[in-house]
Design a protein around this nucleic acid. Structure first.
Lengths: 301, 301
DNA sequence: TCGCTAACGTGAATCCAATTCATAATATTC
DNA sequence: GAATATTATGAATTGGATTCACGTTAGCGA
């Protein structure tokens, strides 16, 4: 049997209006239409939904069950419709973020915290675990924004610049390299490099230093968490290259040394990638604005 | 906008089947029909529900919202349909009982207790407060069964006999009438009669004794609860006429006397009135069977 | 009890919207 | 890049919902 929402609306209207004729008026239909509709529904259901002994017809016990369901379901539909309305006008939406750079957790949380106060209706989430194909995921609408420092010219994707940072060398104060004012590619030959577990073309050390110079570090250890990387570096089990904002805490720590890389002016830029059509959405624009201003404030203070 | 269940079913099917074509097969429709339907729905809603960049098309974030609603609502509809199925086959139903005779509470609870074990799916209730127009209420399907000792020949109503009882006179042992072996109408002239608060034509004392004899008791006090009536009678503040099954407890109590009425063979019959079409329903038949057998067992033991 | 009025039911005609048919456009795969 | 699979499109068709016109029934007051 094929119950439809139309039927639920009708049942509710007849009940509210207390009769077929008034209900018909309410719904901008003829009384006859409703009569036919009810008859059809009763056919479907296989029993009488109304008592016709008394004249303004009233719900039977089976009809009351239907009414209860209607009263539960129809408000849900209304809510859904209102939600779509809000979606259209841009008050609400979804902001699922994929991050290619693990270190971004650091400032991203702070930014999201500010964001969700301004846009409480927007469904926010961070999706780790798809760092490799985050751009296809963006196009498939699995996520809505990708934090990346490797803009690729892709149809349908807009790259919004956020802020610049310096990939910075960090090592133990015990490490012999502490003697050098600046670190170059060959310095890594006899070092254990510690990095996030992502492919080399997503790691600044490789893309900007080691790969061009065709240098391979003595060992390469993959670690997920920034705190753990710093811990290992602190105990001189390896060296790392991290964005400057991450190592602001260890800069003043005597156990660590930080040094600029190679020519000395290495700068990278972080982007928020969105689908073209989303870039204009008000909450997206706001998020990107926050992503531009807040991290630099964080780094200073 | 007019979302219909059809749309929810479609969304769910496309998601389950993982594509339009397979979904169409599932729903016994052409792929084209679904394509049109989805397009129409997206028009209504005012945004894309699916991502078409990749070929087996997938839900967009708005589509996912719709899917969530569908997953909540469609099971409710299925449950409803199953319920109607059960209603048709008679496994479930409603048994709302109106009682004209207050004293019936006594045995009715016991019967209902047995009944609800046998028919757990049937919605049981006792409706007091419409003793006066219980038969119209029965026809209006406000209740489904009326316990009555006053069968009226009414179109659409079947009276199923339950059991017989004797309206019995009960008074304090202190009352002068205790001396009489049998109580007649004129004996009430100088007595306070205590009865349930219902119209006289529903009270056995009047219909079978006082009204025919045109006798009026000295006073007539209305009391709701059987226990209170007996209490008042016990302290000789009045006399009462109650069904024999109610006074089985006081028969052995020295504070009370019970006497037969008038000619001595006054017997009344209790009926369960149902709508004609309901009388055949299995759970109704079962209830009536219980209503015949259980009260007499109670009275004996 | 009669007749009036309001409310509901019925059947044929109509209309609109959902579906189909046929085919084009587009992505995916090897 | 051909072959395949998947979705889109437009005209034609179908079918179900609605309307129209009228018949029927219940309620109500004189």
């Amino acid at each position: 049997m094929y119950i439809e929402l139309r039927h639920l609306r009708t049942i509710r209207a007849i009940h509210q209006a207390g009769g077929l004729a008034r209900a018909a008026e309410m719904m901008n239909m003829t009384q006859s239409a409703l009569s036919h509709q009810v008859a059809g529904l009763e056919d479907q259901v296989g029993m009488e939904l109304f008592v016709r002994r008394s004249k303004p017809m009233t719900l039977s016990s089976a009809g009351i069950r239907l009414l209860r369901t209607a009263d539960r379901i129809l408000p849900e539909i209304s809510a859904l419709e209102e939600e779509f309305q809000s979606l259209r006008t841009g008050k609400t939406g979804r902001l699922h973020i994929a991050i290619q750079c693990h270190a971004c957790f650091d400032w991203l949380f702070a930014v999201l915290e500010m964001f969700r106060h301004a846009w409480p209706e927007v469904d926010v989430d961070i999706r780790a675990g798809l760092a490799f194909d985050s751009f296809p995921a963006l196009l498939r609408e699995e996520v809505d924004l990708v934090i990346s420092s490797n803009p690729e010219p892709l149809a349908g994707i807009t790259f919004n610049p956020l802020f610049d940072y310096q990939p910075t060398f960090v090592a133990s104060a015990q490490n012999p390299l502490a003697a050098k004012p600046m670190i170059e590619a060959t310095d890594f030959r006899d070092q254990t490099l510690i990095s996030y577990p992502v492919s080399r073309d997503k790691l600044d050390v490789f893309t900007d230093l080691l790969t061009p110079a065709k240098v391979e570090p003595r060992a390469h250890r993959l670690v997920e968490l920034t705190a753990v990387i710093l811990m290992l570096v602190g105990s001189n089990r390896g060296v790392a290259v991290l964005p400057d904002w991450v190592i602001r805490d260890v800069k003043t720590n005597a156990d660590y040394i930080t040094r600029p890389l190679a020519p000395g002016n290495l700068t990278r830029r972080l982007y928020a990638a969105t689908r073209d059509e989303d870039a204009a959405k008000p909450f997206m624009a706001h998020f990107i604005r926050l992503g531009r201003s807040e991290p630099v404030k964080l780094q200073r203070g």
